[in-house]
């Protein structure tokens, strides 16, 4: 089926019109288990791509590999024209490819605003020798503080500005982590399960934030189990299973792929678990 993202028909490992990230032959073994075995993957620039698949499919491992938090056994990947294989994670982040974590990593005993300020890159005062010369960094500090306050307002965390991050709820920490990642104006944001543990009221605002990212030209790649989110905001869906890419395509198409639904999302992916239980009870009668 034709679409404006892939070159030709959507298929696992298909070429994209304008890829921001191209991975080739990336494998990672843990002992005898091959956690990731991706022959070819392209992430379209400026789009929201969802990476889905059952538990243990290798989604988070692939994230760790691409961002330099883990080393692959084989493989190369090119981000925005630069080969990132073997590049340490902090340099990956500096190149504009910023990630969040499945288990939220808010810096608990720093205040919310300090968490945000840490997200900014190129603060000259973060250099030890320059940290003595306040005039060298105070102006930039004011700039990033203003930017942080702006982001906190957008993420409705401004009331928590001076609180320790430890005092935030799980959902608020997710928001903080995402807001912090945006401090550096990344080109590619990689969100590892942004909805996990977020209450439904916050979910909607998180979805809006992710859509806003796209509007501002940021590419988003996210891992998610929440099919509602995948269907509503993603432009492209990549399905992983047992370390491999098994399907790709626009969400409407991929979601309808009965094999994908049954094998990787469960037969009741579309229905609320409560109604499933009622149905089972009814069926028994």
């Amino acid at each position: 089926m034709a679409n404006n993202i892939s070159v030709g028909a959507a298929a696992p490992g298909c070429k994209k019109v304008d890829p921001i990230l191209v991975a080739d032959n990336v494998t990672r073994q843990f002992g005898g288990l091959t956690a990731v075995d991706v022959a070819h993957l392209e992430i379209p620039r400026g789009q929201i791509t969802a990476l889905i698949g059952p538990n243990g499919a290798g989604k988070t491992t692939l994230f760790n590999l691409l961002t330099g938090f883990d080393k692959p056994n084989t493989g190369t990947w090119i981000y925005d024209g630069k080969n990132l294989a073997g590049v340490p994670s902090y340099k990956v982040a500096r190149l504009g490819m910023v990630r969040t974590f499945q288990l939220t990593k808010a810096l608990s005993l720093l205040t919310v605003i300090d968490n945000m300020r840490l997200g900014a890159q190129d603060q000259p005062g973060e250099n030890f020798l320059r940290s003595f010369l306040k005039p060298l960094w105070v102006k930039y500090e004011n700039q990033i503080t203003a930017k942080a306050d702006d982001l906190l307002k957008r993420f409705k965390l401004d009331a928590k500005r001076e609180d320790y991050a430890a005092a935030l709820s799980g959902g608020q920490r997710k928001l903080l982590e995402m807001a912090r990642a945006l401090m550096s104006d990344p080109k590619l944001v990689m969100l590892d399960e942004p909805m996990a543990g977020v209450n439904p009221a916050l979910t909607q605002s998180l979805l809006e934030h992710i859509k806003d990212l796209k509007k501002n030209g940021t590419t988003v790649l996210f891992v998610e189990h929440d099919m509602h989110m995948v269907r509503h905001i993603s432009d492209w869906v990549v399905v992983m299973a047992e370390g491999k890419i098994v399907a790709e395509g626009p969400p409407a198409v991929v979601m309808k792929d009965q094999a994908v639904i049954d094998a990787y999302l469960g037969a009741h992916a579309d229905t609320d678990l409560g109604t499933v239980a009622i149905k089972i009870v009814k069926d028994k009668k």
Binding site: S89, Y90, K91, A93, L107, G119, E126, F128, S184
Partner: peptide, 24 residues
């Protein structure tokens, strides 16, 4: 200073600080 802020961040979670582009 911002330098000290990075250190306190590392105390809390060094992977998080790494993901923000700091050479931990």
């Amino acid at each position: 200073s911002p330098w000290g802020r990075v250190l306190r961040g590392i105390r809390e979670d060094e992977d998080a600080v790494r993901s923000l582009g700091k050479n931990v």
